[in-house]
Write a protein that binds this DNA or RNA. Structure first.
Length: 483
RNA sequence: GGCGACGUACCCAAGUGGCUAAGGGGGAGGUCUGCAAAACCUUUAUGCAGCGGUUCAAAUCCGCUCGUCGCCUCCA
């Protein structure tokens, strides 16, 4: 398995610290607002990495934090006239709501910054003792110049940064690049007792403290959005390595951005879409599929059209699954081979290896999905030959289980076709019920038996206008939701 | 200004030295069907931003040019 490491700027063979157990940490959210689709991408990308590493047979310990104390949370609370911790708690719950629908699993530990104040203070105290940090007016700063390797992740030279520094002037800091480990609290702000007086943690220190506590001094994978490379992750490295004297992380992985009109989606530009906004128009699975249909490091242009195409693709999957289930449900006594038997056997024989090869190459989900649709095409062609018999049933069953296996790793294609259509009916706001549709199908069946094609077609057209497509098959009519 | 990434068909998107340039969507034609739908078939890049170079061999490596974007400030 090869993973692209931001630290070395290349794909590297994945060799975890411990051969059996993989330790990974991803930066979660600051809980001050609803999540947008960029948060979804990050969460889904790392969710898939974790699932795939488990699929490969490793035990995984996965940590994803919540930043529950921060300026933005405090400001939001002020705006709303509520308590800062109530704001954080509310948006953590909203996060779970969105992520559950997107199929993002819970991490093994989901630590909150405020639950690790003691650990953070210990690290800050240690950094001061080792000469990497200094106190000024109740705040503590990390002295960037004292850490020789500063800039190694973001490939920056400290002197260049000073020259072009756009950081605000802070007289208390020795250098403008120094960053806060501990911030003295102002009047009325949340505060914790510390050796430097009442204050609260700086942003970066929490990840160092929580990863150290839950994963140890050196762990395997640390991830987040590419916008966290600098300064957040650079600072984490400085703090952690200065404190422990050990390498902090083996593999740094960063996902690319979502763009709108080619520009990065961001809060400040105001060009962002929240997850729930999108889920009011598209099924959550379509969002997940859309995000996985591009390699995680590439930018993705967000658009309704792309989401719609994702829906069409998923629909193709479930339509095939329905066909498989229909096929396996029918009598398959007499044996009739399909001309495409060899082609299906070939692809079944290499499918699993192909999937692993794609995923082993820096989690190439786009290629892996391509393999899934290749199998679907060959299988459909095979079924077009109307084969029957035990061997055929076995091959079709095997196809289905391989599709489910691959889908399971990506956590897509895990529902039944019926569940998919039901969900589509909700999201497309279809104005007829399943019972209505069955009644219409019954009426049409009679019309067709009477060879009253005009009436049969009018019933079909009527449903089509409501977003329901009828399909006449040998043994009856089925319906689907139009995507 | 410094650092970095990207530019593959009508659209999205894999592929980063050698097998017919994956896969999805769309278009055109066809098979099947009462007609449809689905599915399948054929077709839609002798070509990978442009120009040079390295090599027996380049979308893939190197150089330059053009274009787009990101980070350097909170950001997934």
């Amino acid at each position: 398995m090869r993973i692209y490491n931001t630290l070395t700027s290349k794909k590297e063979e994945f060799l975890p610290v411990s051969p059996e157990k993989v330790t990974m940490y991803s930066c979660g959210i600051t809980a001050y607002d609803y999540c947008h689709i960029g948060h979804a991408r990050s969460a889904i990308v790392f969710d898939v990495m974790r699932r795939y590493i488990q699929y490969k047979g490793f035990a995984v310990k996965y940590i994803r934090n919540f930043t529950d104390i921060d300026d933005k949370i405090i400001n939001r609370a002020k705006q709303e006239g509520s308590a800062w911790d109530a704001v954080a708690e509310k948006f953590i719950q909203e996060y779970y709501h969105d992520m559950d629908l997107l199929g993002v699993g819970r991490a093994d530990v989901e630590p909150k910054a405020t639950e690790h104040i003691t650990e953070m203070i210990d690290i800050v105290r240690g950094l001061i003792a080792k000469g990497y940090a200094y106190e000024a007016d109740g705040s503590v700063y990390f002295e960037v110049g004292a850490f020789r390797e500063y800039g190694k992740l973001s490939k920056r030279d400290l002197e260049d940064m000073m020259a072009g520094a756009r950081v605000e002037v802070n007289e208390k800091k020795k250098s403008p690049m120094d960053f806060a480990l501990w911030k003295a609290s102002k009047e009325g702000e949340p505060a914790w007792e510390s050796p430097w007086g009442p204050g609260r943690p700086g942003w970066h220190i929490e990840c160092s403290a929580m990863s150290l506590k839950h994963l140890g001094e050196t762990f395997d994978i640390h991830g987040g959005g590419a916008d966290l490379i600098f300064p957040h992750h650079e600072n984490e490295i400085a703090q952690s390595e200065a404190y422990t004297g050990k390498p902090f992380v083996k593999y740094w992985v960063h996902n690319g951005f979502i763009t709108v009109d080619k520009e990065k989606m961001s809060k400040s530009l105001g060009n962002f879409f929240t997850i729930r906004e999108i889920m009011s128009k598209f099924d959550a699975e379509a969002i997940r599929f859309f995000l996985l249909s591009t390699h995680y490091r590439s930018p993705i242009e967000f658009s309704d059209e792309q989401l719609r195409e994702a829906e069409v693709s998923i629909d193709r999957y479930y339509t095939t699954l329905l066909r498989i289930d229909d096929f396996l449900g029918q009598d398959n006594e007499k044996g009739k081979a399909s001309a495409e038997e060899k082609a299906l056997e070939d692809i079944l024989g290499r499918f699993r290896a192909g999937f692993a090869e794609a995923m082993d190459d820096d989690f190439n989900t786009a290629l892996a999905i391509g393999g899934i649709f290749e199998l679907i095409r060959v299988l459909n062609k095979y079924l077009d030959g109307r084969p029957s018999g035990k061997k055929v049933a076995d091959m079709v069953t095997r196809s289905r289980s391989l599709l489910k296996e691959a889908g399971g790793v990506l956590n897509i294609f895990t529902r039944t076709p019926a569940e998919w259509y039901r969900s589509l009916m909700l999201v497309k706001q279809i104005g007829v019920t399943e019972v209505d549709i069955e009644v219409k199908i019954g009426e049409r069946r009679q019309a067709r038996a009477d060879k009253d094609w005009a009436r049969a077609d009018s019933i079909r057209k009527d449903l089509d206008e409501k977003g329901i497509i009828l399909e006449d098959k040998k043994d009856g009519t089925t319906w689907r939701v139009k995507v």
